[in-house]
Amino acid sequence: MKAHYWIAFVLSLSLLPATAPGETQPPGPQIAGAEIMEKEQQAFYSQGKDMKAEIRMELVTADGKKRLRSLTMLRWNDPGSKDQKYFLYFREPADVRGMTFMVWKYPARESDRWIYVPAVDLVRRVAARDARSSFVGSDFTYEDISGRNLAADSHSLLREEKLGDRDCYVVESVPKEPTDYVRRLSWIDKITFLPLKEEYYDVQKELTRVFTADRIESIVAAAGGEQKSFPTVTRRTMKNLKTGHRTEVAFTAVAYNIGLQDAVFTERYLRNPPERWIK
């Protein structure tokens, strides 16, 4: 509950005045599930031309033991298509500092990935078929981090309801091919189109994972010569109800439209990360 008050507070202060008038009007009830999810993907995974963030992931076991992952993430949206490029630089744990990971993501086909292992000075391509596997041992999958192909699920709008004091669409997504979940419910904010909560159900139809957006901040950045506000989920949690394990993620130093270049996302920079962005 606390998180939702906070969201409301932040949003009411900064988001609403900065949003264009057309966007404040929620679309009519006839809006289709797929359309909502498309807007969600745009809001959650692709805002701005590019993005940079310091990410701190805490992996917490059921009995409270913690493992830390900290990394810097760069994202660049291809202006000519829906392709995206990601660059991850790992800082912690200490013995993996300097490991880098690069993803070229395409909306409807498998992405290309590379990893650099400094201890043996090797760059290796990594198979991308494991989009549903755990990202660095966390409760998030690769798809949870960078978005899932919209066409892989059938989406339907179940109902509209308040979550806390935010008006939400509740969308049900059912995978077309068998995967680790058989049903996902998303509570999507009618104004920001950010997911406030997601529930994943497994093959036994039991609730297994729950995503919550715990804090949403508006990040102001230059966009087309004026200041624009980007509502961003800066704290999120994925909890596995079966294992009691959870992963808490905090985004800090979030910046949009910083002028990243396509050239940064190449194998050369995997070995020598671009100093301008990653110190």
Binding site: F90, D95, V96, I115, V117, P118, A119, S133
Partner: peptide, 18 residues
């Protein structure tokens, strides 16, 4: 080296079942 072991295991943990 300890670094190699650490990075190998991290690499393994990047996509293996936790």
């Amino acid at each position: 080296s300890l670094e190699k072991v650490g990075q190998y295991l991290f690499l393994f943990g990047m996509s293996a079942k936790p």
